[in-house]
Simulated assay, not measured.
Amino acid sequence: MRMSTFIKNFIERETISRRHFLLASAAGLGAAVLPNPLGGSARAALTDPAIAWSYRDRASAYWNSVVSGGEAFVESLGKPKSALVSLINEGSSEKSLADIKAFLAKNNGNCALACDANDSPNARPIVEAVAAAGGYISTIWNKTDDLHPWDFGDNYVSHMTWSDEKPAEETARILFEAMGGEGGVVHLGGIAANNPAVERLNGLKNALKDFPNIELLDAQPADWDTQKGAALMSSFLTRYGDRIKGVHCANDNIAYGVIEALRAEGIEGMPIVSYDGNPEAVQMVMDGQLLATVFTNPHWGGGITSALAYHAATGSFKPSEEPKEHREFYGPTVLVSKKDAEEFKAKYLDSVPKYDWADFWGPSNGQIQYRS
């Protein structure tokens, strides 16, 4: 069966994005960071800091939405979109850190950065490099539990993540109900060291406790990637065959690959749930190809993360004077199922809501809680 036009084009865009990344790497950010003699604590408010977003790729609708939020923020400052520098790491933690160090060196630390560190252990060296150079950084998604903004004075402005466990549990329950409460399920996850990958698998496992006739056949990382998702689903089909009655995906990109792997085997109508609430996935929910996805408002998340770093850098507010719930907090989540997908699409996707980028914590969802 022929590959759907959307997913075929999506995979082609991923490949092109990687080529562009390699060309940019060859041309650009290879310099080592230069030490800032002032250090992070000696510098006062910055003047017109360079603004950057460090993230995985432009191939996915999710990261495009994050960056569009950052661009909307810089435009609110009267700057062009191009004033937001993209530091694209393509899933490499080493590249993420090297590019940030090069950006700091190029701008002598006069920087405001928004960043997803790619994996949790990479967050600390990134934050330490930014603080040492006198820059300011706000992070999302990935950091270790022992890394806190308040341990770095003002330079580590904030960290936002999303409480993925409960929404992933909700999608799993929708999946299990569609399976009739019995049969085998497989989970295709993100990068193993990513906080959201861990939480989304935990959500699935939580739901399993109430469905004794559902068997988790396998759970493996697909690295948030469509092509890896397709390859992994093909291997699951080879190993487990028709024992698979449902699929739990850690993000929408993986789900696209799962659908193609199923179609290659002539399988239609398999119950599938995913995560991210990308426009294509929402349409698939409306069309019945996916049961549910979860929206994390990446446009708002991308814009407000940039805004926090920038306004802290320019002295609009002092992070160290803010309560802890303003420095580590959850972003919003919205479960999207067939019954509400059309209403959701009209509200969030057909036209992008306008946000007040000075309302730093308006849609946020409380302080991050850690397991003891």
Rank of each mutant, 00 (worst) to 15 (best):
V66A: 02
V66H: 06
V66M: 14
V66G: 00
V67W: 00
S68Q: 15
S68E: 15
S68C: 08
G70Q: 00
E71F: 09
E71T: 10
E71Y: 12
E71N: 07
F73A: 03
F73L: 05
E75Q: 14
S76M: 07
S76T: 11
S76F: 07
L77E: 12
L77N: 06
G78I: 08
G78L: 12
G78V: 10
K79F: 07
K81A: 14
K81C: 11
L84G: 02
L84S: 04
V85W: 09
V85D: 09
S86T: 08
S86G: 13
L87F: 00
L87W: 00
L87G: 01
I88E: 02
I88Q: 00
N89H: 09
E90P: 01
G91L: 03
G91Q: 06
S92G: 10
S92C: 09
S92E: 02
S93G: 12
E94K: 13
E94Q: 14
E94S: 13
L97I: 11
A98C: 02
A98V: 05
A98P: 05
A98Q: 15
D99T: 11
D99Q: 15
D99N: 14
D99Y: 12
I100D: 11
I100E: 11
K101W: 01
A102F: 01
A102M: 06
A102K: 07
F103T: 03
F103L: 05
F103E: 04
F103A: 00
L104S: 04
L104N: 09
A105F: 04
A105P: 10
A105E: 02
K106R: 15
K106T: 13
N107R: 14
N107P: 13
N107C: 10
N108R: 15
N108L: 12
N110G: 13
N110Y: 04
N110Q: 15
C111S: 13
C111G: 10
C111V: 15
A112H: 09
A112T: 05
A112E: 00
L113I: 15
L113A: 01
L113Q: 06
A114N: 04
C115L: 02
A117I: 03
A117C: 07
D119V: 11
N122K: 13
N122P: 01
N122H: 08
A123E: 01
A123H: 00
R124E: 15
R124Y: 04
R124F: 04
R124S: 13
P125V: 09
I126W: 03
E128Y: 09
E128V: 06
E128P: 05
A129V: 03
A129G: 05
V130M: 12
V130S: 10
A131G: 11
A132T: 12
A133W: 10
A133C: 03
G134D: 09
G134R: 14
G135T: 11
G135K: 10
G135R: 10
